[in-house]
Amino acid sequence: MESPTPADPSELEELYRLLAAVRQLDTAAVRWQRQGIIPGYAPLLGQEAAQVGSGYAVDPTRDFLFPTYRELGVARAVGVDMVEYMATHKATWHGGLYNPATTHFAPIQAVVGGSVLHAVGWAHGQRLAGPGEDGYNVALSYFGDGASSQGDVHEAMNFAAVMKAPVIFFVQNNGWAISVPTERQVAGGSVAARAAGYGMPSLSVDGNDVTAVLEATRQALAHCRDGGGPIVIEARTYRLGPHSTSDDPGRYRSLDEEQSARRSDPLAACEALLRTRFGTPDSFFAGALAAAEAEAEAVRQGLEGLAPRPGSEMFDFVFQEPTPALKAQAAAWRTESEHV
Protein backbone atom coordinates (compact mmCIF):
# COMPACT_ATOMS: atom_id res chain seq x y z
CA MET A 1 0.00 0.00 0.00
CA GLU A 2 1.12 3.58 -0.64
CA SER A 3 2.22 5.96 2.07
CA PRO A 4 -0.46 8.44 3.18
CA THR A 5 0.46 12.12 3.16
CA PRO A 6 0.27 13.41 6.76
CA ALA A 7 -1.83 16.50 7.27
CA ASP A 8 -0.47 17.37 10.73
CA PRO A 9 3.20 17.43 11.72
CA SER A 10 2.59 16.67 15.41
CA GLU A 11 2.03 12.94 14.97
CA LEU A 12 4.90 12.65 12.51
CA GLU A 13 7.18 14.50 14.93
CA GLU A 14 6.24 12.05 17.68
CA LEU A 15 6.99 9.16 15.36
CA TYR A 16 10.36 10.67 14.52
CA ARG A 17 11.24 11.02 18.20
CA LEU A 18 10.39 7.37 18.68
CA LEU A 19 12.47 6.36 15.66
CA ALA A 20 15.42 8.38 16.96
CA ALA A 21 15.10 6.87 20.45
CA VAL A 22 14.94 3.34 19.07
CA ARG A 23 17.92 3.94 16.76
CA GLN A 24 20.04 5.17 19.67
CA LEU A 25 18.98 2.36 22.00
CA ASP A 26 19.62 -0.27 19.34
CA THR A 27 23.07 0.95 18.33
CA ALA A 28 23.96 1.47 21.99
CA ALA A 29 22.93 -2.11 22.80
CA VAL A 30 25.43 -3.38 20.24
CA ARG A 31 28.14 -1.32 21.97
CA TRP A 32 27.05 -2.65 25.35
CA GLN A 33 27.49 -6.19 24.10
CA ARG A 34 30.99 -5.39 22.80
CA GLN A 35 31.81 -3.81 26.19
CA GLY A 36 30.58 -6.86 28.12
CA ILE A 37 27.58 -5.14 29.71
CA ILE A 38 25.22 -7.62 28.03
CA PRO A 39 26.20 -11.06 26.65
CA GLY A 40 24.16 -10.96 23.45
CA TYR A 41 21.74 -8.89 21.40
CA ALA A 42 19.74 -9.09 18.14
CA PRO A 43 19.97 -5.70 16.36
CA LEU A 44 17.06 -4.15 14.46
CA LEU A 45 18.96 -1.48 12.53
CA GLY A 46 16.90 -0.64 9.44
CA GLN A 47 13.65 -2.05 10.82
CA GLU A 48 12.76 0.88 13.09
CA ALA A 49 9.84 2.14 10.98
CA ALA A 50 8.20 -1.29 10.81
CA GLN A 51 8.36 -1.62 14.58
CA VAL A 52 7.54 1.94 15.63
CA GLY A 53 4.74 2.37 13.09
CA SER A 54 2.98 -0.84 14.10
CA GLY A 55 3.50 -0.43 17.83
CA TYR A 56 2.29 3.17 17.75
CA ALA A 57 -1.00 2.11 16.14
CA VAL A 58 -2.17 -0.31 18.84
CA ASP A 59 -4.00 0.44 22.07
CA PRO A 60 -1.87 -1.28 24.76
CA THR A 61 -4.67 -0.93 27.29
CA ARG A 62 -6.77 -3.48 25.37
CA ASP A 63 -4.70 -5.09 22.60
CA PHE A 64 -1.84 -7.52 23.26
CA LEU A 65 1.52 -7.68 21.48
CA PHE A 66 3.57 -10.87 21.11
CA PRO A 67 7.22 -10.18 20.23
CA THR A 68 10.24 -12.19 19.19
CA TYR A 69 13.74 -11.34 20.42
CA ARG A 70 14.12 -8.34 18.07
CA GLU A 71 11.18 -6.07 18.96
CA LEU A 72 12.90 -3.42 21.07
CA GLY A 73 11.32 -0.80 18.82
CA VAL A 74 7.81 -2.12 19.43
CA ALA A 75 8.41 -2.28 23.18
CA ARG A 76 9.64 1.33 23.21
CA ALA A 77 6.67 2.49 21.13
CA VAL A 78 4.12 1.04 23.57
CA GLY A 79 5.88 2.36 26.65
CA VAL A 80 7.66 -0.69 28.09
CA ASP A 81 10.42 0.26 30.53
CA MET A 82 13.64 -0.20 28.58
CA VAL A 83 15.77 -1.30 31.52
CA GLU A 84 13.21 -3.97 32.35
CA TYR A 85 13.08 -4.96 28.69
CA MET A 86 16.86 -5.22 28.37
CA ALA A 87 17.08 -7.38 31.50
CA THR A 88 16.67 -10.43 29.27
CA HIS A 89 19.59 -9.41 27.06
CA LYS A 90 21.68 -9.00 30.20
CA ALA A 91 20.62 -12.54 31.17
CA THR A 92 19.20 -11.17 34.42
CA TRP A 93 15.66 -12.36 33.78
CA HIS A 94 14.02 -14.60 31.23
CA GLY A 95 11.52 -12.76 29.03
CA GLY A 96 11.95 -9.31 30.60
CA LEU A 97 11.43 -7.86 34.08
CA TYR A 98 8.42 -5.84 32.92
CA ASN A 99 4.93 -7.10 33.79
CA PRO A 100 3.18 -8.49 30.66
CA ALA A 101 -0.21 -8.30 32.36
CA THR A 102 0.02 -4.52 32.74
CA THR A 103 2.05 -3.63 29.64
CA HIS A 104 0.17 -6.02 27.32
CA PHE A 105 3.58 -6.86 25.86
CA ALA A 106 4.24 -10.59 26.12
CA PRO A 107 7.61 -11.92 27.34
CA ILE A 108 10.44 -11.86 24.81
CA GLN A 109 10.24 -15.09 22.83
CA ALA A 110 13.42 -16.77 21.58
CA VAL A 111 11.70 -19.78 19.99
CA VAL A 112 11.33 -19.06 16.27
CA GLY A 113 7.61 -18.81 15.52
CA GLY A 114 6.66 -19.55 19.13
CA SER A 115 5.01 -16.19 19.84
CA VAL A 116 2.62 -16.70 16.91
CA LEU A 117 0.92 -19.60 18.69
CA HIS A 118 0.56 -17.57 21.87
CA ALA A 119 -0.96 -14.66 19.95
CA VAL A 120 -3.55 -16.86 18.25
CA GLY A 121 -4.46 -18.49 21.55
CA TRP A 122 -5.02 -15.11 23.20
CA ALA A 123 -6.99 -13.84 20.20
CA HIS A 124 -9.17 -16.95 20.20
CA GLY A 125 -9.99 -16.20 23.82
CA GLN A 126 -11.09 -12.70 22.81
CA ARG A 127 -13.29 -14.19 20.11
CA LEU A 128 -14.94 -16.52 22.63
CA ALA A 129 -15.45 -13.63 25.07
CA GLY A 130 -17.18 -11.58 22.39
CA PRO A 131 -16.68 -7.99 21.27
CA GLY A 132 -16.85 -4.96 23.52
CA GLU A 133 -18.50 -1.67 22.68
CA ASP A 134 -15.66 -0.84 20.30
CA GLY A 135 -15.28 -4.31 18.84
CA TYR A 136 -12.77 -7.03 19.58
CA ASN A 137 -9.47 -6.64 21.35
CA VAL A 138 -6.70 -7.60 18.94
CA ALA A 139 -3.51 -9.63 19.19
CA LEU A 140 -0.50 -8.47 17.18
CA SER A 141 2.06 -11.21 16.49
CA TYR A 142 5.56 -10.41 15.23
CA PHE A 143 7.77 -12.74 13.24
CA GLY A 144 10.19 -12.65 10.33
CA ASP A 145 10.26 -14.02 6.81
CA GLY A 146 12.37 -16.92 8.04
CA ALA A 147 9.93 -17.81 10.81
CA SER A 148 7.07 -17.72 8.30
CA SER A 149 8.30 -21.10 6.99
CA GLN A 150 7.88 -22.77 10.38
CA GLY A 151 5.12 -25.34 10.71
CA ASP A 152 3.84 -23.66 13.87
CA VAL A 153 3.14 -20.48 11.91
CA HIS A 154 1.12 -22.33 9.25
CA GLU A 155 -0.91 -24.14 11.91
CA ALA A 156 -1.51 -20.87 13.76
CA MET A 157 -2.69 -19.11 10.60
CA ASN A 158 -5.04 -21.93 9.69
CA PHE A 159 -6.52 -22.13 13.19
CA ALA A 160 -6.94 -18.34 13.36
CA ALA A 161 -8.68 -18.25 9.99
CA VAL A 162 -11.05 -21.10 10.83
CA MET A 163 -11.93 -19.58 14.21
CA LYS A 164 -11.92 -15.97 12.92
CA ALA A 165 -9.57 -14.96 15.72
CA PRO A 166 -8.84 -11.20 15.86
CA VAL A 167 -5.09 -11.40 15.27
CA ILE A 168 -2.67 -9.50 13.04
CA PHE A 169 0.22 -11.55 11.71
CA PHE A 170 2.89 -8.86 11.34
CA VAL A 171 5.79 -10.10 9.20
CA GLN A 172 8.98 -8.09 9.06
CA ASN A 173 10.50 -9.31 5.82
CA ASN A 174 14.04 -8.03 6.32
CA GLY A 175 15.47 -9.95 3.40
CA TRP A 176 17.35 -12.57 5.37
CA ALA A 177 16.53 -15.66 7.42
CA ILE A 178 19.85 -15.38 9.26
CA SER A 179 22.11 -16.12 6.24
CA VAL A 180 19.49 -17.35 3.77
CA PRO A 181 17.89 -14.75 1.44
CA THR A 182 14.11 -14.55 1.24
CA GLU A 183 13.93 -15.86 -2.32
CA ARG A 184 15.58 -19.10 -1.24
CA GLN A 185 13.22 -19.89 1.62
CA VAL A 186 9.85 -18.25 0.80
CA ALA A 187 8.22 -19.75 -2.29
CA GLY A 188 7.04 -16.95 -4.54
CA GLY A 189 9.04 -14.40 -2.56
CA SER A 190 6.05 -12.98 -0.68
CA VAL A 191 4.79 -13.94 2.76
CA ALA A 192 1.65 -11.84 2.27
CA ALA A 193 0.63 -14.00 -0.71
CA ARG A 194 0.29 -17.00 1.60
CA ALA A 195 -2.66 -15.38 3.37
CA ALA A 196 -4.98 -16.19 0.48
CA GLY A 197 -4.42 -19.89 1.09
CA TYR A 198 -6.00 -19.49 4.51
CA GLY A 199 -8.84 -17.31 3.28
CA MET A 200 -7.58 -14.19 5.01
CA PRO A 201 -6.72 -10.77 3.59
CA SER A 202 -3.24 -9.29 3.56
CA LEU A 203 -1.50 -5.95 3.25
CA SER A 204 1.98 -5.48 1.77
CA VAL A 205 3.65 -2.27 2.87
CA ASP A 206 6.96 -0.41 2.59
CA GLY A 207 8.42 -1.27 5.98
CA ASN A 208 10.87 1.64 5.80
CA ASP A 209 8.00 4.19 5.66
CA VAL A 210 6.70 4.77 9.17
CA THR A 211 3.50 6.48 8.01
CA ALA A 212 2.67 3.64 5.61
CA VAL A 213 3.21 1.06 8.36
CA LEU A 214 1.08 3.06 10.77
CA GLU A 215 -1.79 3.31 8.28
CA ALA A 216 -1.60 -0.39 7.36
CA THR A 217 -1.69 -1.42 11.03
CA ARG A 218 -4.65 0.85 11.71
CA GLN A 219 -6.50 -0.70 8.78
CA ALA A 220 -5.70 -4.18 10.06
CA LEU A 221 -6.84 -3.30 13.57
CA ALA A 222 -10.16 -2.01 12.22
CA HIS A 223 -10.62 -5.23 10.24
CA CYS A 224 -10.06 -7.37 13.34
CA ARG A 225 -12.17 -5.21 15.65
CA ASP A 226 -15.11 -5.50 13.27
CA GLY A 227 -15.04 -9.29 13.45
CA GLY A 228 -13.33 -9.86 10.12
CA GLY A 229 -10.93 -12.40 11.60
CA PRO A 230 -7.16 -12.52 11.08
CA ILE A 231 -5.08 -10.54 8.63
CA VAL A 232 -1.45 -10.56 7.46
CA ILE A 233 0.77 -7.49 7.14
CA GLU A 234 4.08 -7.92 5.36
CA ALA A 235 6.43 -5.01 6.01
CA ARG A 236 9.18 -5.08 3.40
CA THR A 237 12.36 -3.81 5.01
CA TYR A 238 16.04 -4.70 5.33
CA ARG A 239 18.21 -5.82 8.23
CA LEU A 240 21.16 -3.45 7.92
CA GLY A 241 23.13 -5.10 10.71
CA PRO A 242 23.92 -8.69 11.68
CA HIS A 243 21.30 -11.23 12.70
CA SER A 244 22.80 -11.08 16.19
CA THR A 245 25.98 -9.79 17.78
CA SER A 246 27.56 -13.21 17.14
CA ASP A 247 26.80 -13.06 13.39
CA ASP A 248 29.04 -11.82 10.57
CA PRO A 249 26.82 -10.77 7.62
CA GLY A 250 29.92 -10.20 5.49
CA ARG A 251 30.13 -13.97 5.07
CA TYR A 252 26.87 -14.19 3.13
CA ARG A 253 26.10 -10.78 1.59
CA SER A 254 28.04 -8.00 -0.09
CA LEU A 255 28.93 -4.56 1.20
CA ASP A 256 27.43 -3.08 -1.98
CA GLU A 257 24.07 -4.62 -1.08
CA GLU A 258 24.17 -3.14 2.41
CA GLN A 259 25.16 0.29 1.13
CA SER A 260 22.34 0.19 -1.41
CA ALA A 261 19.83 -0.69 1.34
CA ARG A 262 21.03 2.24 3.46
CA ARG A 263 19.56 4.60 0.89
CA SER A 264 16.15 3.56 2.25
CA ASP A 265 17.04 4.33 5.86
CA PRO A 266 13.70 4.79 7.71
CA LEU A 267 14.98 7.51 10.04
CA ALA A 268 16.34 9.56 7.14
CA ALA A 269 13.09 9.07 5.20
CA CYS A 270 11.01 10.40 8.10
CA GLU A 271 13.35 13.36 8.51
CA ALA A 272 13.12 14.17 4.80
CA LEU A 273 9.32 14.11 4.95
CA LEU A 274 9.25 16.47 7.92
CA ARG A 275 11.65 18.88 6.25
CA THR A 276 10.05 18.92 2.79
CA ARG A 277 6.39 18.73 3.84
CA PHE A 278 6.41 20.88 6.98
CA GLY A 279 9.71 22.78 6.95
CA THR A 280 10.72 21.31 10.29
CA PRO A 281 13.84 23.17 11.52
CA ASP A 282 17.26 21.78 12.46
CA SER A 283 16.58 22.51 16.12
CA PHE A 284 13.85 19.85 16.25
CA PHE A 285 16.14 17.12 14.96
CA ALA A 286 18.99 18.19 17.24
CA GLY A 287 16.63 18.07 20.21
CA ALA A 288 15.32 14.63 19.26
CA LEU A 289 18.87 13.31 18.96
CA ALA A 290 19.94 14.80 22.30
CA ALA A 291 16.90 13.29 24.06
CA ALA A 292 17.56 9.90 22.46
CA GLU A 293 21.21 9.90 23.50
CA ALA A 294 20.28 10.87 27.06
CA GLU A 295 17.71 8.08 27.21
CA ALA A 296 20.22 5.49 25.99
CA GLU A 297 22.71 6.59 28.63
CA ALA A 298 20.05 6.35 31.35
CA VAL A 299 19.18 2.82 30.20
CA ARG A 300 22.86 1.85 30.26
CA GLN A 301 23.17 3.04 33.85
CA GLY A 302 20.01 1.20 34.79
CA LEU A 303 21.26 -1.99 33.19
CA GLU A 304 24.58 -1.86 34.98
CA GLY A 305 22.72 -1.31 38.23
CA LEU A 306 20.67 -4.50 37.92
CA ALA A 307 21.65 -6.99 40.60
CA PRO A 308 21.66 -10.74 39.99
CA ARG A 309 18.38 -12.47 40.74
CA PRO A 310 18.19 -14.98 43.62
CA GLY A 311 19.22 -18.41 42.41
CA SER A 312 16.21 -20.01 44.10
CA GLU A 313 13.95 -18.37 41.50
CA MET A 314 14.96 -21.02 38.98
CA PHE A 315 12.57 -23.38 40.76
CA ASP A 316 9.73 -20.95 41.39
CA PHE A 317 8.29 -20.57 37.90
CA VAL A 318 8.53 -24.04 36.38
CA PHE A 319 5.08 -25.33 37.37
CA GLN A 320 2.12 -23.70 39.05
CA GLU A 321 2.14 -26.62 41.49
CA PRO A 322 5.71 -27.89 42.01
CA THR A 323 6.23 -31.59 41.49
CA PRO A 324 7.93 -33.81 44.09
CA ALA A 325 11.01 -34.04 41.84
CA LEU A 326 11.22 -30.25 41.56
CA LYS A 327 10.84 -29.85 45.33
CA ALA A 328 13.66 -32.34 45.84
CA GLN A 329 15.89 -30.47 43.39
CA ALA A 330 15.18 -27.16 45.14
CA ALA A 331 15.99 -28.66 48.52
CA ALA A 332 19.25 -30.13 47.20
CA TRP A 333 20.20 -26.80 45.64
CA ARG A 334 19.60 -24.96 48.92
CA THR A 335 21.70 -27.48 50.81
CA GLU A 336 24.59 -27.20 48.35
CA SER A 337 24.35 -23.41 48.14
CA GLU A 338 24.84 -23.03 51.89
CA HIS A 339 28.39 -24.24 51.42
CA VAL A 340 29.25 -21.95 48.48
Rank of each mutant, 00 (worst) to 15 (best):
G144D: 08
D265M: 04
R253Q: 07
P107M: 06
A325D: 14
A87S: 14
S246E: 10
R334E: 15
S179Q: 08
Q51A: 11
T276Y: 03
G207Q: 11
T245W: 02
A156S: 12
R262H: 08
G189A: 08
D209G: 00
R34M: 12
R251H: 07
K90T: 09
E13G: 02
Y56P: 14
P4W: 01
E215F: 00
S260R: 03
F315Q: 02
L44Y: 04
A91G: 11
P100S: 10
G287T: 03
A147I: 01
L25I: 10
Q259H: 01
L65I: 12
C270D: 12
Q47L: 11
F159Q: 11
F159E: 12
M1G: 13
Q51Y: 04
A216D: 15
T27W: 01
L65S: 03
A268V: 05
R277A: 15
L255V: 05
R76K: 12
A290Y: 06
L303Q: 02
P322G: 00
G189D: 11
H243F: 05
R17I: 13
G229N: 07
A49D: 15
T61C: 04
D256E: 13
G113F: 04
D316G: 06
D26S: 04
A156I: 01
L203I: 14
G241L: 09
T92K: 04
Q109R: 02
T68I: 03
G55A: 03
G53D: 15
R275E: 15
A165I: 05
T217H: 04
E133T: 01
T5F: 02
E313K: 00
P107E: 15
K327E: 14
H339K: 13
N174T: 05
F105I: 14
T5E: 15
V171W: 04
L117F: 09
S54Q: 12
A330T: 02
P4A: 06
Q301I: 07
D256N: 03
S115C: 10
Q24W: 04
Y69P: 07
A196Q: 08
Y16S: 09
A288P: 14
A106V: 14
A177S: 13
A106Y: 06
L303P: 06
P107A: 09
R194N: 11
